[in-house]
Design a protein around this nucleic acid. Sequence first.
RNA 1: UCCACAGUAGCUCAAUGGCAGAGCAACCGGCUGUUAACCGGUAGGUUCCUGGUUCGAGUCCAGGCUGUGGAGCCA
Length: 447
Amino acid sequence: MASPTLIRIADIAAHEGEQVLLQGWVQARTGKGRLHFIRLRDGSGIVQCVAFRHEMDEDGFALARALTQEAAIRVSGEVRRDERAPGLPGGYEVGVQRLELVGAAEEYPITPKEHGVEFLMDRRHLWVRSSRQWAILRIRATIVSAMRNWLDDEGFLLVDTPIITPAAGEETTTLFDIDYFGEQAFLAQTGQLYNEANIAAFGKVYCFGPTFRAEKSRTRRHLLEFWMLEPEIAFCTLEELMELQERFISHVVGTVLEKHSQELALVGRDTTALERIKAPFPRISYDEAVERLHALTSTIEDAEQRELLAIEHGEDFGSPQETAIAEQFDRPVFVYHYPTAVKAFYMEPLAERPELCRSVDLLAPEGYGEITGGSERIHDLALIEERVAQIGLPREAYDWYLELRKYGSVPHSGFGIGLERTVAWICGLPHIRESVPYARMLNRKSP
RNA sequence: UCCACAGUAGCUCAAUGGCAGAGCAACCGGCUGUUAACCGGUAGGUUCCUGGUUCGAGUCCAGGCUGUGGAGCCA
């Protein structure tokens, strides 16, 4: 008998008829007397191992009988093709000849039956082993690499921005503050201000890292710690920014569809909605969005519903408004030229209507809300100084940022995309907490 | 911060104000094709906490705690 080769389950199809060695964890076991089925998980995939009494020594079979969920084992045997075999990729099973226990498992709390949210989130360190969570986190990793690869290929440079910062990026109400040897500092809520410095060195840059917002919001779309990717481009207009974003998003969705049909099936995602995600995306102005909402509201009979969607021109959209607008399209929709007053201080006002600014949000379909937010930035020194003063931000903290406008200031634009919201949308998750390995929320900082 | 709902076995849930229950998991036994197997058996309870009403409270009342869904805020 040939000595077995150690393989990963993902590659099992290439080893049909061969003696192989697998190492992993028992996802499930069912006994049939002299026959036991062991569903083995090794991180790359899932395969059914079949232990027949007559094919094994007595100790090995006794072990197979006694295996508990999540026991760590090594299995060697022959790879067979069998249509009945479940798993990932599936269709193959291993006839067990030798079995070795590497690490025993006590009674595992996450059984194959249903569990509540709190129970699972308390055991997130174990829950990541479950198929659905495994699939989501694999898709998340692909989304990250697709985003970065696309930007790298487009000539962007990754330039990391600091996580500990001396000042708020945008406002001061939602920052985590930390003790910086007796001085106050904050965890970054954006890398954008630094990106604006970096474009003058590199032209097109992006930063990607965790950002922190101490918002007391408790919704299915919010985390206190989330990952954001922020491209920034010199000599770029709002229109060019939208064009860039739609190509970027289309590429990311396309990559996931291409690489993860199995994972999307595991999470129960209807991929026809994703296959429509191709540039160009519809674009509507804030003015038009408000008109659409007014038109929609006038057709609604239910007073409570109407109240929820009510909006005055000049107000920002809430979740119900965002969802209602996005529902009118089958692809992500750009909403541009928001009121200056509801947006960040650095956004360029429209020359002809300064109460509006050259901003754009991208609203994902199916109620996933805003996944990107961006704008053209103010590049005029006097105007940005005025805005900093107006907003009441401490001038000293922004000295370096304002100084950028003194040395070759150019029109420039950028956007930020929330990774977790993107993952939630692409995977069709009901709640953002499943889109990140270890969620940080209002009532949760552990595990 | 506001609104709504919930908390009973390890898990998911039942129980008209009147004996604390089921399925799954665990444990013991059976089964050569299971897919969240099936069949028989065993064990498993501070009904979230504090107080109140009542002959009697898991159930009704008050306060609190925790969680869930939504709003606001945002990516």
